[in-house]
């Protein structure tokens, strides 16, 4: 199962980190420090609003990617993370992947959602413009992620690209292990309809993205 693969991968990273030399006190080893850091983190936060302490519990992907500390994952670790995350994608039951691009633009602009300062009943967006250039009319865009301007124009409008776009929004780690992009579907940030609307923003020929 994918969990066992990732656990063995994580052990491999930790063992490599502590290779060689005389006995080091547990706290001084990398694994020791990591354990202390996690414990300290959990003791230094308090639940507030919709953000409970459970948000500090890491899943396997978060754990492995944190241990890599910004270094790109080695090929076989990357493949294992991508395979494990791809297997967890839930595709729409009706097989339709395209929604309303006008709503997609609103979702891309909306920066609220999931913060403890946000109303849990309030709007939840994907905040895409924080990291991406998308529609050309919006000049206030970030550069943490690549430009998505002309997304379908460049890649094609067919079902394969639609599937890739939906999958990427649902779970970006399925395509790029340890990506900085949130897993909007997997972590329950966006609803299925919202994700379809975002896909439409990227894929609809009428969307300003492709004009």
């Amino acid at each position: 199962m994918h969990t066992r693969y990732l656990l063995s991968v994580m052990t491999a990273i930790v063992v490599t980190g502590c290779a060689g030399g005389a006995a080091t006190p547990p706290s001084a080893t990398d694994a020791g420090i990591a354990a202390k850091a996690e414990a300290m983190l959990k003791a230094s936060f308090k639940a507030r609003g919709q953000a409970g302490l459970d948000r500090l519990d890491q899943d396997e992907t978060q754990r492995v990617c944190s241990a890599l500390a910004n270094k790109p994952p080695p090929r076989e670790i990357a493949e294992k993370i991508e395979r494990a995350n791809l297997a967890m994608i839930k595709w729409p039951a009706d097989g339709k992947l395209l929604g309303d691009w006008k709503n997609g633009e609103k979702i891309a602009q909306e920066g609220r959602g999931k913060q403890y300062s946000d109303d849990p009943a309030g709007p939840v967006g994907a905040n895409c413009y924080a990291c991406h250039q998308i529609a050309p009319q919006e000049v206030s865009y970030g550069t943490i992620g690549p430009s998505l301007y002309r997304f379908a124009k460049v890649r094609g409008y067919g079902p394969e690209i639609q599937k890739y776009a939906y999958g990427k929004v649902f779970n970006s780690d399925a395509y790029a292990a340890c990506t900085t992009m949130p897993r909007f579907g997997h972590n329950g940030i966006l609803t299925e309809q919202q994700m379809k609307d975002v896909v439409a923003l990227l894929m609809d020929p009428e969307s300003p993205v492709n004009k």
């Binding site: 420090i33 944190s66 500390a69 999931k114």
Partner: peptide, 22 residues
């Protein structure tokens, strides 16, 4: 030790957005 722990915290990814400082 505080420095090393701080570094680990800097790279700690969590929450629904998988965000860390890094």
């Amino acid at each position: 030790e505080a420095y090393r722990i701080g570094e680990k915290i800097f790279y700690y990814r969590g929450g629904p957005h998988d965000f860390g400082c890094a």
